[in-house]
Design a protein around this nucleic acid. Sequence first.
DNA 1: ATGGTCGGGAACCGA
Length: 266
Amino acid sequence: MRIATWNVNSLRSRITRVEAFLERHDVDVLAVQETKAKIDQLPLMGLQSMGYDVAAAGISQWNGVAIISRVGLDDVRVGFPGMPGWGDAQEQEARAVGALCGAKDGRGGVRIWSLYVPNGRKPGDPHYVYKLDWLARLREAAQAWRDEDTALVGDWNVAPFDEDVFDMAQFKNSTHVTPAERAAFHAFVEDGYADVVRPFAPGPEVYTYWDYFRNRYERNRGLRIDFVLGSPSLAQRVTGAFIDREERAGTGASDHAPVVVDLADG
DNA sequence: ATGGTCGGGAACCGA
């Protein structure tokens, strides 16, 4: 089974590229972030005609997430127990929270969580405090999923290592690289989740996001902030992975590239 | 310190 994650920066404006990506790489399950649309605004007809089902959590203007699957969607969940504002969509909208939804594939083998970690804006900002709280609560919830085939995939808005940043000097006093954010990310690894892509796409100068400003992509001035973290049993099934860097090229691209992971049958 | 470019939704805000 081939799974992927991609911050599409608006599913409506990116739908043609999403469909082409799924076909080009023969993807079974795609987790998307920043759908930027309510569920009833999503352009699903083309995806459905390609054999995909869609589960979505449309929470605010910019942080919606979805899972697109052609191997079924069982036991779809939105949010996680303990998630700030869990069960209160209006509060989530008001607080511009991160978003997360998860589903098992049709054979019940893998639970994939599509997650958009809140953007902290600036260290010390209320959104930054909220981001750390959100990650801590997700960690607690994820500990209960560690003994299953679980994939935590998406835009973590954290660059865990210096080599994941094109120029650390430009990130003084910036979010994404603070010790607290990095510790929050590494806590998942300490609990047994593994970055299953990095062994197949080692740095330095390997990124998943390039700002639209200043020709950052053309100059490869990016960040690695999109990750697939696998529980131990899921990580054992990984046979390969890659970042589809070329998807970021040209006009009409998202500012993030997709990340693809291959799994052996469980 | 600021600016640069996108997307959404119709003026800027947030990434």
